[in-house]
Write a protein that binds this DNA or RNA. Sequence first.
DNA 1: CGGCTTTGACCTGCGC
DNA 2: GCGCAGGTCAAAGCCG
Length: 260
Amino acid sequence: MVATSLTIDLNLNPFSTTHDDTHVKEAGSYDDDDDHSFEKEVDDHSVWDLSRKSNENKKLKEMLIDIWDKYNSLTTHVNKLIQDKEELESSPKKRKFDETVQQSLWKRPREELPISGIKRVYVKVDPCDKTLVVKDGYQWRKYGQKVTRDNPSPRAYYKCSFAPVCPVKKKVQRSMDDDSLLVATYEGEHNHRSPNEEATYALANGREISTSERWFDSPKLDEVLVEQMASYLCKDQNFTSQLAAAITSKISDIDLFKVC
DNA sequence: CGGCTTTGACCTGCGC
DNA sequence: GCGCAGGTCAAAGCCG
């Protein structure tokens, strides 16, 4: 597993960074009778500061994209590991049973299944939560629910909201062995970006996503994205310590201005 | 009012 | 051909 770490120079305080020092000194050495020169210098400083922040903003956006890519690849990797582990732990008899079920599920012999067309994803959920919802970034429309013979838990059938343009279907059913595990089976490949990827893409291009450009216009999307990013960043001690330092520095500077 | 979920009915494939 | 089981349809109801 690859450990991910961030080194972020937030530069939240425009007067505290090393390359700002000379500028602050110059600004502080003006005579009172040179008002115009001082104003011009303040304007220059604002423009320069704006430009610098704009560059930092751009860098942060690039980092956000990178983080999101890493998050996606890690999720895929974890799912694969869980799947491998389950296969190893299951007895030969059970494995044979699973294959029989898998074949009957899709009404096609296993060897005829497209290798990348069908994939299973295991999602840990609260056992008390009886809803068959797997949050995967895409929007789904439920079109059926059925209790199957081999599992007392009902199976939910979903189509991608962009059907018939997008042919992807998914089935969600609680695992027989583990009540807190949902098994999502995907059929087909999305022929569009996920709403999360769409948001990240738009962010990277430095523009808002217009309603017509969004694959779907859900206010929950931003919320989910922000939560995921916040959760990811909070796990990085380097980031949190630098953030704390930057905030402390900013607060002390504000206090300093008040005194002046 | 539009979009989504629910749920019973119907369709389809497979084994006997 | 029949019965069974999984998969899909579509009308009704719900909700924001």
